[in-house]
Design a binder for these strands. Structure first.
Length: 289
DNA sequence: ACCCAGGACTGAT
DNA sequence: ATCAGTCATGGG
């Protein structure tokens, strides 16, 4: 049985799937407890989130209704988003049916940037472990066991060797340089928020350890740019095996062009349905041929 | 032992 | 512009 947090924010959230949203590789600071509630962070606010009776309950200090709604993407007009999807796409239809309540989060850009710099060739559970280790090692402590994610200025004062102690491997150098770029103001995450998506993407890719895929993840999961379409190994697998039916000689540029044209102005949202589906439904790829 | 993981960087064509 | 090699670490 579940006991949602009793005090705090309560929002109508009909159809919202908290489990799918928080376990689908967007956010890495949340852990689900035995009571089925999630403990994690919205920005610098530690909180507990649970679902009950079509409502989302979030307990934590310093939170507002608008802030929580914005974080979980509950303030978006989903009708218009879904209406922009390709109408006759059986794979996207199946993906949406698998987890209809999956939503795209709007997270804090710096932490999201770090998470995805650390994401390359790592599994989702390992990225969450790195996020936790970075918090404990370098983040300001609110209470015992509660560490804010370290700001750029703080990570910039840490040595590369100290970063390596968080199991970052070859990503330690990337994060080490990236923190200094941001802390020095060489690249402004606030300014990026004001740029059109193509320019914002170019600017993000100036950060060390950020290529096209990571830039698209930050655009989608932090800046709310729903047209950003990250193509990782899973999504590439979906595109090649389902949409191109194993046709050989499809170059990455062609995949990117197809996904932009086919999935449309909110393609990133469709991408997240496909990603979550392909990773969690064992039968997902069986009907490919 | 082997293969894979929400890839990016480097240096060669 | 595009391609192969390389980069640490943990899980299955």
């Amino acid at each position: 049985m579940k006991t949602p947090p009793e005090s705090g924010i309560s929002l109508a959230s009909r159809g919202f799937d908290l489990d799918a949203t928080l376990s689908s590789g967007q956010a890495f600071s949340w852990r689900r407890g035995a009571d089925e509630n999630w403990r994690g962070w919205i920005g610098d606010h530690p909180c507990v989130a649970g679902l009950d009776g079509g409502r989302l309950f979030v307990h934590g200090s310093g939170l507002t209704d608008a802030g929580v709604a914005r974080y979980f993407g509950l303030d978006l007009g989903l009708d218009k988003i879904f209406a922009s999807f390709p109408a006759d796409d059986p794979w996207l239809t199946r993906a949406r049916a698998f987890a209809p309540g999956l939503r795209i989060l709007r997270q804090e850009p710096w932490e999201t940037l770090c998470n995805f710099i650390c994401s390359s060739l790592k599994q989702i559970v390992q990225i969450a472990q790195i996020n936790h280790d970075l918090r404990v090692a370098f983040g300001p402590k609110l209470r015992p066991g509660e560490h804010v994610f370290p700001p750029a200025a703080q990570l910039a004062r840490v040595s590369e060797a100290e970063l390596r102690s968080c199991k970052l491997g070859f990503r330690a150098k990337h994060l080490f340089i990236a923190a200094r770029q941001i802390a020095a103001g060489e690249i402004s995450l606030e300014h990026i928020a004001t740029l059109p998506t193509p320019e914002a993407r170019e600017e993000l890719m100036r950060v060390r350890g950020v290529g096209e895929k990571v830039a698209n993840c930050v655009l989608l999961f932090a800046y709310g740019r729903l047209e950003a379409f990250p193509i990782d190994v899973w999504v590439e697998r979906v595109l090649r095996q389902l949409y191109f039916r194993n046709r050989r000689r499809i170059r990455p540029g062609a995949l990117r062009l197809f996904s932009e044209r086919h999935f449309g102005p909110h393609g990133g949202y469709a991408q997240q349905f496909l990603f979550h589906w392909i990773r969690n439904d064992p039968a997902a790829l069986e009907d490919a041929g």
